[in-house]
Simulated assay, not measured.
Amino acid sequence: MQTNPTHTSLVAVGDSFTEGMSDLLPDGTYRGWADVLAGRMAARSPGFRYANLAVRGKLIQQIVDEQVDVAAAMRPDVITLVGGLNDTLRPKCDMVRVRDLLTEAVERLAPACERLVLMRSPGRQGPVLDRFRPRMEELFDCVVELAAKHDAVVVDLYGAPSLGDPRLWDVDRLHLTAEGHRRVAAAVWETLGYPPEGAGDAEWRTPMPVTPPPGWGARRVADVRFARQHLFPWIGRRLTGRSSGDGRAPKHTELLPYPGAQG
């Protein structure tokens, strides 16, 4: 791994995790770990350029069809690829096909950049993760195998128990909070070989401070709100074949100077 690198461009590929949900900004848009990472890289590299092609709800086939060739054509210094988890959460999932498509994506992206970044994504502690854990771990095994074969790096977020803490996850129980995204950005920063810039960089693996758990009543209220606002609509989209990303364009479609980057 390069130590103290100076990358001049970054393209992010994936789904809602990379789009930045649920790191909500005051204007109603999402920031997320990729934007945070790009801002930090831009502060070290004059003229730094960034694109984020990720769109919520995308399956690995859609990522391959809609994002991979676009990212490869940009030929940036760094490409991040996170995909396949939406597939593993579907009632029916062909893991052989998911692995084949992820392999195809890596084979196209690895030659198009100096450093390809893959991830073992974080998972919230709870019964949902336990139900889908075998599929997720099969996906992550594939990620590790592909990284070794194509000289990519793997950010092991799944192996960091701190990121499974429910307090780092939004009320939808599927997406990280702003603090969760900040920790992911710090993890990628470290994996790329950049030196720590503060105490926050070193603590992304550190568990959250212990606090008294919420009472039974508060947990039941949270469960009802989660079911009404998130679980039932999610089930409805699965039953009707719809996605939260249908008709939605990526937020940064072109490889352009990052706002605030030095010229």
Score class of each variant (00 low, 15 high):
Pro257Thr: 08
Ser121Ala: 15
Met136Ile: 14
Pro161Asn: 04
Glu254Arg: 15
Met21Glu: 08
Met21Leu: 14
Leu85Ile: 15
Gln125Arg: 15
Thr191Glu: 15
Val171Ser: 13
Glu107Gln: 12
Asp141Phe: 00
Tyr50Leu: 05
Lys92Gln: 11
Asp94Ser: 10
Arg248Pro: 00
Pro166Ala: 00
Val82Phe: 06
His7Leu: 09
Gly123Asn: 13
Thr191Val: 15
Ala38Arg: 06
Arg242Gln: 15
His230Gly: 02
Ser244Cys: 10
Val55His: 09
Arg228Pro: 00
Pro259Lys: 05
Pro195Asn: 06
Pro91Glu: 00
Pro5Gln: 10
Ala199Tyr: 04
Pro91Leu: 01
Gln67Lys: 06
Pro5Lys: 12
Asp23Ile: 04
Val55Pro: 07
Tyr158Ile: 04
Cys93Leu: 06
Asp69Pro: 04
Met41Asp: 05
Lys251Thr: 07
Glu19Cys: 01
Ile63Val: 15
Leu59Ser: 08
Leu59Tyr: 11
Arg97Ile: 00
Val98Trp: 03
Phe132Thr: 07
Ile63Gln: 07
Pro76Ser: 01
Val153Gln: 02
Arg133Ala: 13
Arg228Ser: 10
Trp204Pro: 03
Asp100Lys: 11
Ala227Met: 10
Arg228Glu: 06
Ala12Phe: 09
Met74Val: 03
Asp201Lys: 00
Val78Asn: 00
Gly47Gln: 01
Arg135Ser: 09
Arg97Met: 08
Glu203His: 07
Arg40Gly: 05
Ala222Ile: 07
Ala72Asn: 04
Tyr158Glu: 11
Gly83Glu: 14
Pro46Arg: 05
Val128Ser: 02
Leu239Ala: 15
Asp15Val: 00
Phe48Glu: 01
Tyr50His: 13
Asp130Met: 11
Val78His: 00
Leu81Cys: 09
Ala51Cys: 05
Trp216Arg: 06
Arg90Lys: 10
Leu37Phe: 10
Thr211Ala: 12
Pro233His: 07
Asp77Thr: 07
Ala38Trp: 07
Pro214Thr: 15
Asn52Met: 01
Asp35Thr: 09
Trp169Leu: 12
His252Glu: 07
Ala105Val: 01
Trp216Lys: 02
Thr211Pro: 00
Asp23Glu: 01
